[in-house]
């Protein structure tokens, strides 16, 4: 059984223009000992997936369907009281903008110690020692002195490490990390991700890592899920996704990540407008940007298992999809088959 199992999660958000269909059936498993990357463009629903699982949605957003089982218990239908007991203990979160996430009025050591006392019932003295040890574990030198510091006295990288120490203090089974290294220097990013990976390998905990950096995914994750317009359009291992992407959106992403700006490539008109979540197209949400789009793409999209847990949400997930010529013939054939 997976540690975290998200099934058919759907979230609506009330906006002045109508109901935005922000998550449209997200299903994803995270197992022990693994880091699962969640990638996709701005507005695809990466962070929203995390907030839904944590029960931290704002007043305008609502889970309308689906479950997110943590060790077999559904977090979505769970009472806020029980969820609060889980958060910070078995499920921890690391956010972007670490200084904003820390309490400006309490020293970082006190914040970590209080989390430890509240959830694990540690005594005052033991909690303080645990906090200092946690700070040392994330590579902070002179942790006893640093524990007395306040958020505004820390650099971005230091604050991010404090946040990781805070997330780790109660030895959570699952860590949700939302862009944990965005904005940090590369040399510091490497230190932080090495640390996260080492903790996962040593303790058997799991991480859901939200990022837009494919380099981070390729170097630190075991599996990856690609989101577009509130759906996971493809998921698989790093080798499957980077070596043999099947969904045209993933193919575009992977190709872009190896882009060398060959100037012979002709420029085309940029038609990358984000899909309108209030009025989503039928069928595949990617079809207006897809080079392979055909009539059949307006019909419900099948999720196709292409082997070894590698799945793609596409009418043309075969090898043909990587060769436009071959795809055209598949397309013609398909159109004929389902044609009017």
């Amino acid at each position: 059984m997976a540690l975290l199992s998200i099934k058919d999660l759907r979230v609506h958000i009330a906006t002045p223009n109508g109901t935005a269909h922000a998550l449209n059936g997200v299903s994803l498993d995270v197992d022990e000992h693994e880091i699962v990357g969640l990638i996709g463009e701005t507005g695809a629903g990466k962070s929203l997936t995390a907030w839904s699982v944590l029960g931290l949605l704002g007043p305008r957003a609502r889970v309308v369907e689906g479950t997110a089982e943590f060790e077999g218990t559904d977090l979505v239908s769970m009472s806020e009281r029980r969820r609060r007991r889980l958060r910070g203990k078995d499920v921890a979160v690391i956010v972007q903008n670490p200084r904003g996430a820390l309490d400006p009025l309490r020293s970082v050591g006190r914040q970590i110690a209080e989390t430890n006392r509240r959830h694990r019932g540690a005594g005052r003295k033991a909690a303080k020692e645990n906090a200092i040890r946690a700070l040392r574990d994330v590579g902070i030198s002179d942790p006893a002195r640093r524990a007395k510091a306040f958020a505004h006295q820390l650099s971005g990288g230091m604050a991010q490490r404090v946040l990781i120490a805070l997330a780790m203090i109660n030895e959570p089974k699952l860590i949700i990390a939302d862009e944990p290294t965005t904005g940090l220097d590369l040399t510091v990013q490497a230190q932080i991700l090495d640390l996260l990976r080492a903790r996962v390998d040593a303790t058997g905990s799991a991480v859901l890592l939200i990022t837009h950096d494919l380099g981070v995914v390729a170097n630190y994750c075991d599996r990856v899920a690609v989101m577009f317009a509130g759906r996971i359009v493809e998921q698989g291992t790093i080798a499957q996704i980077f070596g043999n992407p099947r969904h045209p959106y993933t193919q575009a992403l992977v190709k872009a990540s190896r882009e060398t700006l060959d100037e012979t490539v002709s420029e085309e008109t940029d038609r990358s407008e984000p899909p309108n979540l209030v009025d989503l197209p039928s069928g595949c949400h990617y079809r207006f940007r897809c080079p392979l789009a055909a009539d059949v793409c307006a019909t419900p999209v099948p999720e196709v298992e292409v082997g070894g847990g590698h799945r793609a949400l596409c009418h043309f997930p075969g090898d043909a999809a990587r060769d436009p010529g071959a795809a055209a013939s598949v397309r013609a054939e398909t159109v004929e088959r389902v044609g009017p």
Partner: peptide, 8 residues
Amino acid sequence: SAALSVDP
């Protein structure tokens, strides 16, 4: 050396 390639 800290730059992360997509093809490690």
